[in-house]
C-alpha cells in the first residue's frame, strides 16, 4: 500500500470506473430523452380544401383545421382571406365579427382588424396570415 505508484493505479482505476459509468448512463439516457421528444407528424406544408367555401356569403367566416393549426377563412368583398385563428396572446381561437369587421378573441377581449392587425387588447403581434388559393371553384388554404 505504501508503494509510490499504487495510489496512481488506484486513481486510474477509479477514473476508469467513473468514466465507464458516465458513458453507460449517457448511452441509456440519450435515447430516453429523444424518445420523449415529440415525433414530427405530417410536417412540411399542408393544404386543405375549405368545404362549402363557394356558398359562403360576403362577411361570413369558417374555421378549418390545417394540420394541427386552426385557420379562419373570411369571405370579404375583395375575396377570401385566411389567418391562423390562434390568438397571438395566449392561444385561444379568434372569431370573426361580421358587424364590426374584426376578429375577436374570447379569452382576454382582444380585437384584430380585417388585415389581422391588433386593434385592442393584450396580443403582442398581429394574426399570422395563411395563404389562400382559388383553383376553379374550390378554395384551398395552405400553411408553410
Amino acid at each position: 500500500m505504501s508503494k509510490p505508484n499504487s495510489p496512481t493505479r488506484r486513481g486510474f482505476l477509479d477514473f476508469l470506473i467513473a468514466a465507464c459509468s458516465a458513458i453507460t448512463t449517457a448511452a441509456l439516457a440519450i435515447p430516453g430523452v429523444l424518445y420523449l421528444w415529440p415525433a414530427a407528424k405530417g410536417g412540411g406544408s399542408q393544404k386543405v380544401e375549405v368545404e362549402g367555401a363557394k356558398s359562403m356569403a360576403i362577411g361570413q367566416s369558417k374555421t378549418v383545421q390545417v394540420g394541427s393549426l386552426a385557420v379562419i377563412v373570411v369571405k370579404q368583398r375583395s375575396g377570401f382571406c385566411a389567418f391562423s385563428a390562434v390568438c397571438t396572446h395566449l392561444g385561444c381561437l379568434v372569431k370573426w365579427d361580421t358587424g364590426k369587421k374584426q376578429f375577436l378573441c374570447p379569452c382576454h377581449a382582444a380585437a384584430f382588424d380585417e388585415k389581422g392587425k391588433v386593434v385592442s387588447g393584450p396580443p403582442p403581434a398581429p394574426l399570422v396570415e395563411v395563404s389562400v388559393k382559388e383553383v376553379g371553384d374550390k378554395i384551398f388554404v395552405s400553411t408553410a
Binding site: 378549418v64 386552426a70 385561444c92 372569431k95 378573441c105 374570447p106 379569452c107 393584450p122 403582442p124
Partner: peptide, 27 residues
C-alpha cells in the same frame, strides 16, 4: 379544437399568477 368558449379561467389556485401575468405585456 376549433372553437374557444367564452370565459376561460384557470382553477382558483392559479388565479393569482394568472392575474399577475396580465400586467406584463409587450416584447
Amino acid at each position: 379544437a376549433l372553437s374557444t368558449p367564452a370565459h376561460i379561467k384557470p382553477e382558483w389556485y392559479f388565479l393569482p399568477s394568472y392575474q399577475l401575468l396580465k400586467y406584463f405585456e409587450g416584447p
